[in-house]
Amino acid sequence: MDIVTLVQQLVNGLSLGSLYALIAIGYTMVYGILRLINFAHGDLIMVSAYVAVMGVGLFSWPWPVAFGLAVVLTGLLGVMLERGAYRPLRRAPRISLLISAIAASFFLENLFLVLAGGRPKPFPTPPWFAGVLKWGGVFIPRLSLLIPVVTAVLLAALFLLIQRTQVGRAMRAVAHDLETVSLMGVNVDRIISLAFLLGSLLAGAGGLLWAMKYPQVNPFMGIMPGLKAFIAAVLGGIGNLAGAVVGGLLLGLLEIMIVAFFPAWAGYRDAVAFGLLIVILLVRPTGILGESLGEEKL
């Protein structure tokens, strides 16, 4: 493999990895607080993409309006999901909470199957994101460079919010010990809603970027990115925001590099992530950056 192809593949891996990171943040924030895998998180990607398709295609809004609305609606949907499907079960056995999450995920997928039909829709990528940059002998789609940049900006904003504000401190405290913090006058419900809102907003943005990278919008498009992002979160150390970013980037690079170096294995690409998950859970269940967890957190 020559250096040009290597650079191209690195950029590809980086942009895929940033998408995983963006989505993984939502999993890791919710897991950090509620110890729940929000199975429906991946479907928020799909909802965001559909809102954008409808906004641009059906109502002919300018794309910034449609995209903004898609992200906001996805954020609100995440909050509604928590209210409707998770909050009533907070004191129920864990298995019920998980089943509720899976049911919510299937409900969203099939609802959009009924509303929008099963035929994949093309995604109206704005010209601003299209095009190819030529740099030396390297051809790089502009989108592949924009995705890591957008991701970096969003994540920087999130880190500032969580590390430097009062609300962010409350959120960190709730993730550390929900019961105690609720005794100290923090409105835990509101903090949990906020965590869902932030995670879902990022998933909304991730959904738009994903749909521009793979411009086929269908009701089941969120499942694989969702599962992969979750694996990325586990790889980095679940509950740890920096870990989600590291895990996402690693998983993205790994997937792209495996296909680049061993083209014959392309069919097994989806199995790689799951194989990796099993290996991490066997060898180091806390992930790369995870604190050492007690048994009760597994």
């Binding site: 897991y31 895998i37 864990r94 998980l98 979750f230 859970l281 066997l282 269940p285 597994l298």
Partner: peptide
């Protein structure tokens, strides 16, 4: 069965 709960589900 090295793991439980959510992890068992996802594995």
């Amino acid at each position: 069965f090295r793991v439980r709960g959510d992890y068992l589900a996802i594995v």
